[in-house]
């Protein structure tokens, strides 16, 4: 084992061939990015279900807690998914760090280069770096919150968090960082690997179209939570229970417990 350590320290290798790890790391960086971006799109649709009504969001939230499978809510199921996403995020961040400007000199060089070149794909990369850096903190904070308090996802619980807990500026920044980073990332991934085989102009239009769509959806969703949170501020902490569930009096998981 010590031999391996000394070899690594000296930068030498007993292998006659180049390591295959740079290839694997490159695939892994792209793969984790792809999964995270696709997850974010799905996530946005689930969160945006509030636009269709409180009951729809309540149903979506209970669905992921297994309520409709087990007849009871298990919020730790959400924590499990959050844990998986956090692992993907950490892996992606670690691998993407390799591409960050590693010194002030490198940062100054790429900034000046992008400014002088006036080249869209070069400038977009700087945006990807900036939003990626923001996501180290914002995404981690959000994931931590969801991991520890998975039971606080619901029409009132989420709206109270957004409004009464004052987190709407956090979500607003997170929204822009995620949508820009994911959109640019997917576009770059496609160009990097040469698939889909569409022209750059077409892919770029598609990218901006999708980014715009998810930004508008995100803003509408955030506005909806802010409105509900504002109207619900006097009953802060109360949980939402759909009318028919209340009337039936059946056990529908921890939402009633929380409300009691």
């Amino acid at each position: 084992m010590f031999n391996a350590v000394f070899l690594a320290q000296s930068g030498l290798s007993t292998r006659a061939q180049k390591s295959r790890w740079p290839a694997r790391l490159d695939l892994l960086q792209g793969g984790t990015g792809l999964l995270l971006a696709l997850f974010m799109w799905g996530h946005m649709f689930f969160v945006a279900s509030i636009l269709l009504g409180k009951e729809v969001l309540w149903t979506v939230a209970r669905f992921f807690e297994g309520y409709f499978f087990f007849g009871k809510s298990y919020p730790w199921l959400v924590s499990l998914v959050v844990g998986g996403v956090a692992f993907l995020l950490a892996t992606h961040a670690l691998l993407a760090l390799r591409k960050f400007p590693g010194s002030y000199q490198q940062w100054k060089t790429i900034r000046a280069h992008a400014k002088a070149m006036r080249h869209a794909d070069t400038t977009l990369w700087l945006w990807q770096v900036a939003t990626g850096f923001l996501l180290f903190f914002l995404a981690s904070a959000h994931l931590y919150q969801m991991f520890v308090w998975p039971q606080n996802i619901g029409p009132y619980a989420s709206a109270d968090r957004v409004w009464s807990d004052g987190l709407w500026p956090f979500y607003l920044t997170l929204l822009f960082a995620v949508e820009l980073h994911g959109g640019i990332g997917l576009y770059r991934l496609a160009r990097k690997w040469g698939w889909p085989n569409a022209s750059r102009a077409v892919l770029r239009r598609l990218k901006w179209g999708l980014t715009l769509f998810f930004l508008v959806l995100g803003l509408l969703t955030l506005a909806a939570y802010m409105k509900i949170g504002f109207e619900h501020r006097a009953q802060y902490g109360e949980r939402y229970t759909p009318a028919q569930v209340m009337m039936s009096g059946e056990d529908h998981g921890r939402d009633t417990e929380a409300a009691q």
């Binding site: 061939q17 180049k18 160009r191």
Partner: peptide, 19 residues
């Protein structure tokens, strides 16, 4: 060819800025 360009100063270092 991997021996020549199969690392981060080779093809895996390209960030596809496309300029």
């Amino acid at each position: 060819f991997y021996e020549l360009i199969g690392d981060d100063s080779g093809v895996f270092g390209c960030m596809s800025l496309l300029a």
